[in-house]
């Protein structure tokens, strides 16, 4: 945004954090805490999802890694996320969102009973 009054530059990291916060505010969407060298890593609905932005001019492509409440319909949920994130990010930053790639990293039941089992993946 350049004019005789000055210019406004938004770093990609700002867009990433804004997008991440928009996602965190959505119900049933969570992220993963990386922890220290992988120790203490945890996934829950209170953590901000991870977002990576690729800028091209005034448009952006987002890669999102998130978790969803189970058994949310994944396709519908991610379409809603895509629409909401695009519109909110455009409203907040003025950057046009071209594509939002979503990778679902985990699914957690709403009523968590995960501490009761000795589950292992085959």
């Amino acid at each position: 945004m350049a004019s005789s009054q000055g210019s406004l530059t938004i770093a990609d990291k700002v867009i990433e954090k804004t997008a991440s916060q928009i996602l965190k505010d959505m119900p049933g969407v969570g992220g993963t805490k990386s922890g220290l060298f992988g120790f203490g890593a945890s996934s829950d609905l209170d953590t901000r999802p991870s977002v990576d932005v690729t800028l091209s001019g005034r448009s952006a492509t987002l890669s999102v890694q998130l978790g969803l409440a189970y058994p949310t319909p994944i396709t519908e949920a991610t379409e809603t996320i895509r629409r909401h994130l695009s519109s909110e990010l455009e409203a907040h930053t003025g950057v046009t969102v071209r594509q939002v790639d979503v990778e679902v990293m985990w699914l957690k039941p709403n009523a968590s009973g995960s501490s009761r089992g000795v589950r292992r993946l085959l």
Binding site: P71, W106, K108, S114
Partner: peptide, 8 residues
């Protein structure tokens, strides 16, 4: 993993 959690 989600189904296994659900099973538990």
């Amino acid at each position: 993993a989600a189904v296994a959690d659900d099973l538990e």
